[in-house]
Computed example of a mutant assay.
Amino acid sequence: MTSSATKGGARESAAQAELSRRAQSPAQRLQHVLHSNPAISPAIILVLTVVVFSLLNSRFASANSLSLLVQQTAIVAALAIGQTLVILTAGIDLSVGAIAILSMMVMATVAAKNGVPGPVALLIGVALGTLAGALNGFLVTRLNLPPFIVTLGSLSIFTALALLYSNGQSIGADQMPDLLNWTGNSFSIAGFVVTNGVVIVLLMYLVVGFALSQTAWGRHVYAVGDDAESARLSGIASKRVLLSVYTVAGLIFGIAAWCQIGRASVASPNGIVDANLNSITAVVIGGTSLFGGRGGVLGTLIGALIVQAFATGLSLAGVDQNYRLLAVGILVIAAVAVDQWIRKVKS
């Protein structure tokens, strides 16, 4: 009797769900799909971008141009991984570039001017980035300060420390040990030139993507971003999760600093100064919600590629730099508008 009633109830629920689905308009169904798969819309934009710019200029689709595009995207894409983690928790980090620059200048300076071996200098730089991220997390979780204010302040602090420590001087590749320049070494795959730095960035995407989708930590990150109070009431240590997010982000920024040295063949306190906004742009265009709880690193990687593809494509098309900035600005606003629409999805 009970078994029959259970089956009948299940069939009724399934029928109601089917009727509900059929009652939805095409726009509502699209809304549900995009809500469940945030990377779809940026992926479509990337494909259309590549197709359009390839038609406008055949050089865009050449192996050389695409290789250069990927290399130019790598650093912002790396920093955007950490930014994604923070934004998933409904926060924001304005200090990503400053942490990377501080890590870069410290690892380069101790190696070039203090004679510290390459492996040790690298560890010092990455550890410093991790510590800087943990400091941001401590201020957010223990003092309950807004992430925007905390990272706005630490942006100035870390930038000043980098300039003071390095005396505002750049350090060339010839002054640094081979290990710090290793990320700039390249190899060829079917005509595409790939640097070691690009491989490291892709590995970070795989690791973080796996952690977010396949581990309890990842589920907790999404839960905290969706509703921190509900997550706490369900037994999740929300503040500990937040602290870990900022700390992991700092670790990623430190590794990105190493990749930047190889990419630019120089450690400069004036490098990647616009990385803060660029990383946020990549995350937003990639479909991660600024309100937390929805998105992922796959979309972020696509978003970073879209921004660079627009810059490269418009440059090859001979479009003025000001119009390139205009195009990126329109993309950001459109992405946020789409996110707002998707967030209104009804179950």
Rank of each mutant, 00 (worst) to 15 (best):
G318H: 13
G295N: 08
G295F: 09
A264N: 13
I285F: 07
D320I: 06
I285Q: 03
N270M: 14
N276I: 07
L290A: 06
V297S: 03
N322L: 10
V297G: 03
G293W: 12
F291D: 06
R324Y: 12
N322M: 09
I306N: 00
L314S: 01
N322E: 14
L316G: 00
I272C: 04
A309M: 00
V266D: 08
V273A: 09
T300R: 05
N270R: 02
V328Q: 11
V328N: 07
A282F: 02
V319P: 02
A264F: 07
A311V: 08
V273Q: 02
R294I: 14
R294P: 00
V297N: 04
T312P: 01
G262T: 01
V328P: 01
L326N: 01
N270I: 13
N270H: 09
V328T: 15
L277W: 08
A267C: 09
A282S: 02
G286H: 05
V284P: 01
T312Q: 05
A327N: 02
I280V: 04
L301G: 08
L277K: 05
V319N: 01
A311E: 14
V307G: 01
L314D: 04
S315I: 14
L316A: 00
V307A: 03
N270F: 12
L298H: 01
I280S: 00
I272E: 08
G293E: 14
A304I: 14
V284Q: 03
G295D: 09
G318Y: 15
G286M: 02
L325A: 07
V319H: 02
V283T: 13
A275V: 02
D274V: 13
A311M: 07
S268N: 15
A327L: 11
